[in-house]
Amino acid sequence: MGASVLQVKNLRTVLDLATGSVPVVDDVSFDVGAGETLGIVGESGSGKSMTALSIMQVLPQPIGRIESGEILLDQTDLVGLPEEEIAKVRGRDIGMILQDPHTSLNPVFTIGNQVIEALQINNPGTPRKSLLGRVVDLLRQVNVADAERRVHAYPHQMSGGMKQRVVGAIAIAGAPKVIIADEPTTALDVTIQLQYLELLRDIQEETGTAIIFITHDLGIVAKLCHKLVVMYGGKIVESGTVADVFRAPSHPYTEALLKSVPSVDQKVDRLYAIDGQPPALSVDRKGCSFAPRCPYVRDICTHQVPQHDAGLSGADTHLAACWNMGRDR
């Protein structure tokens, strides 16, 4: 793992709604190095997808905007860059894979055309014909069987798993430094999901790209990621290496997530469950956003925001934001 390719520092993104400016990403910091996979875990409304959209700077317009913070791609701050610069970065340095393969591809163009489109962004002026060989290579790289023939196929002629692999080919066409994958396997079957995760890992080994994998599934994180960030209510509640966080989950929310998922290894009679719902967007929030559901809630939790404590599990990369850190729960 090399130096940080992408570094996000104190990112704060808001949506300007009729009720006021609502923070959807609040003081979020993380970094990911070459050849490294970072998992961002959270539920609906946790801000995980908004974080991805902030990095790509494709927030819902006109209501979404980055209020403060830095997004450093190889030390260059992307926040505040003019749109044409960002557009170049998006096609070339950052690849994106979205959840639904059926809507990610344009139904009226062939697969080959769409991959060529992505290649041309990086090789402007190159005739399309000469890129065809490269397209076949890319499709082979993402395990599309019979790539020479499939180049001429339309999206509707392919299965969901196959389409998602094509989306993957488009994402890596520009040899990006970072791939952002937002729940790319949620719409796929389990056996196909496994294939896809292996594919991402192979691509990473070959190209050394960094991957940010956004998901709600901790099983995927355990399988694929090196580091993870757990988000709740727009904030990071815990972060660290996957090994540290899984062995010693320190935030009550992480703990609840890990305990509440039914295990495939053994049968249990009851699942661990926390009451309540994930928080809705709101303008003014006091204290820890998990406090209303937290089994260990104390007075201070409801009116003061907890800071990140480092040095959990003996590693300064393992952080959690909880007022109960270091206390017996």
């Binding site: 599934d217 901790l218 099983g219 995927i220 355990a222 295990s263 495939v264």
Partner: peptide, 11 residues
């Protein structure tokens, strides 16, 4: 194959 595709929560 199907059961082995389930990803356990352990590292």
């Amino acid at each position: 194959a199907l059961l082995s595709a389930a990803l356990p929560l352990r590292v």
